[in-house]
Design a protein around this nucleic acid. Structure first.
Lengths: 337, 337
DNA sequence: TTGTAGGCGTTATCAA
DNA sequence: TTGATAACGCCTACAA
């Protein structure tokens, strides 16, 4: 900016060689002139030469960049996915452009547009607010993987050879939760719902179905929190207590932890008066008071897998399949003492 | 990739115009031919044309990209900074390349190298493991801001007109904590330290000084956790109890929350037997049991400020100054009932 | 109002 | 082992 960076041409003039020589020497092509190579490397070093990746990507037709679309970096689960993704990408020499979109479809569209503009070599999408087909359409020729994607559309078919999905299998996770609660004698089980994401729909439907299968379909039913943030939890407590449930299955841990706090304020004893179960197993679930029963998602692992799948797709022009398994973690919040 | 994307030239041939016409029409230059503009826009739309930002940045000498270096995306504080940063950047039409480095200096160096390669128009660095001068050197001509930077080097002088810092003023934060505890009758106050970052050194030194100033210098002294993660908290409890403190000032909230859990396991009552104070005011501090007294850092605000400072520096070629103020938040964990 | 031409920094092809 | 030269996709004078 202030002082423009040194270019390949500058460097060539400095060492008195042609640009192509310098370019090759820098990437230690085949066994090159061992003597000029050292001269070049030393000059590059001392002048702080760093190749312009825009120029490079223009000619090699690859940006060595991945895009990561994620709902909310403030959320520890998403942070873990991002961490896994970023680390695995860095190891392979890729940069990652990140975009967090919260609940805003306009921001999502903008972000995908930016990814396309940067010609990202691969893109991972988590918690999209659009239909998968739309996402695929705007990112067309790039490998794409949906992370923690419960969208029914994706479950059914592979849209394209270069479109993959890491599914969390929320269905089995939620079935395990209901099973656990029923086994432990809970009968009036309510689902406290989250945002308008596909995952919320799947989890809610699964709870409903599992409850019905256990002959508990006439319970307190569902309560809608709308969001999963702890902020609004206290407003929910009255609504919840009115229904007189003996167990709460929450959309996710953030919601559950917020409720734990709000219930304590309201003088409700967990798990004595009411069991509470979350979903995701974020780090705070293990150290809350009471510690939270939940379904673990291997979040960092999912981030890493996403990168591996993208790399695989770039390499082989075919997207590998993937499936991760949820795991029930039973802690204090759902065990009657 | 598979099918190469439509280029400006393609589009020009499609609509039967020259590339420059299309280019200008797309950016709705001045009042252009209203008729061809529409034709162009429609064609771009239907063919999914997205300008190649590598090519663009090559000619305009600006990447419309920021780099964000952050220690750990899993950490809610860092996640908040990243969120603020990313949102503000997106609003200004900038992409952000993110890198999380954990405790690995090699990763940090690589990340900075990548930023330089992408010719990021600005870079924000949080929790660097290197000396500020090194960082400045490798990022030379780009505006740079250190976030939550307590490094003494930075406090003293402005390294460069394009290098800025958002300081957290940990000193005043910690002084407020000590003051609060002393006012509330605590006498045996210990500091539980975190990782080898500058911020830990500053916080520890401040506590020590403030304690001495209150005539409490002969207290239980310091305990080193080494890291701030809750994982290792239980191993600390014995070490802590041996010193018989009546209050614990922790390096940060993660450490404090981990200790809360570990102390509960050990049968220690907080705040009855022992007060615990954190630092940062991450979201879980407000809903823990007991709720945690801590020092609030305006994390998202800091992320946003970083972007604003970078934009300012790009605009005016001078880095604006910034300072944010910590704020003590008193909750249950430090109030004897 | 529109078109032509040159160049941004790099890599790759083809000669020397 | 090295050096010209031609792209890559876009923007921007300058010309028409």
């Amino acid at each position: 900016m202030s002082t423009a960076r040194v270019t390949l041409l500058d460097l060539a003039q400095i060492v008195g060689a042609s640009p192509s020589t310098v370019s090759r020497a820098l990437r230690s092509d085949p066994q090159f002139s061992l003597v000029t190579r050292l001269r070049v490397l030393r000059a590059a070093e001392s002048h702080g030469y760093v190749p312009n990746s825009a120029a490079r990507s223009l000619v090699v037709k690859a940006s060595r960049t991945f895009g990561l679309l994620i709902p909310d970096l403030t959320d520890p689960l998403h942070g873990q996915v991002a961490t896994g993704f970023e680390h695995e990408a860095a190891m392979a020499g890729y940069s990652v452009i990140i975009a967090s979109i919260l609940e805003d479809p306009a921001r999502e569209r903008m972000a995908l547009q930016l990814f396309a503009g940067h010609r990202a070599d691969g893109i991972a999408v988590m918690g999209s607010l659009q239909e998968p087909d739309e996402v695929v359409a705007t990112l067309k020729p790039s490998p794409l993987v949906f992370v923690a994607a419960e969208h029914p559309r994706l479950a059914r078919r592979h849209v394209d050879v270069l479109v993959g999905a890491i599914r969390a299998d929320d269905v089995r996770g939620m079935e395990a939760v209901v099973d656990h609660l029923v086994q432990n004698g809970y009968r009036r089980i309510a689902y406290v719902g989250g945002p308008r994401r596909a995952s919320n729909l799947v989890r809610r439907a699964t709870v409903r179905r599992a409850l019905a299968a256990s002959g508990l379909g006439d319970g307190p039913g569902e309560i809608t929190a709308g969001v999963s943030r702890w902020r609004s939890a206290s407003a929910l407590v009255d609504k919840i207590l009115n229904k007189r449930p003996d167990a709460l299955i929450c959309y996710d841990d953030k919601l559950a932890l917020g409720l734990l706090d709000a219930l304590r304020s309201a003088g409700v004893n967990v798990p004595g008066d009411l069991a509470v179960v979350g979903f995701d197993d974020i780090v705070y679930a293990a150290i809350s008071h009471p510690r939270l029963t939940t379904v673990a998602q291997p979040a960092e692992e999912m981030g890493r897998r996403a990168v591996q799948m993208l790399l695989g797709a770039i390499e082989t022009r075919t997207m590998p399949a993937s499936e991760t398994l949820p795991r029930l973690v039973v802690r204090e919040s759902s065990i009657r003492s």
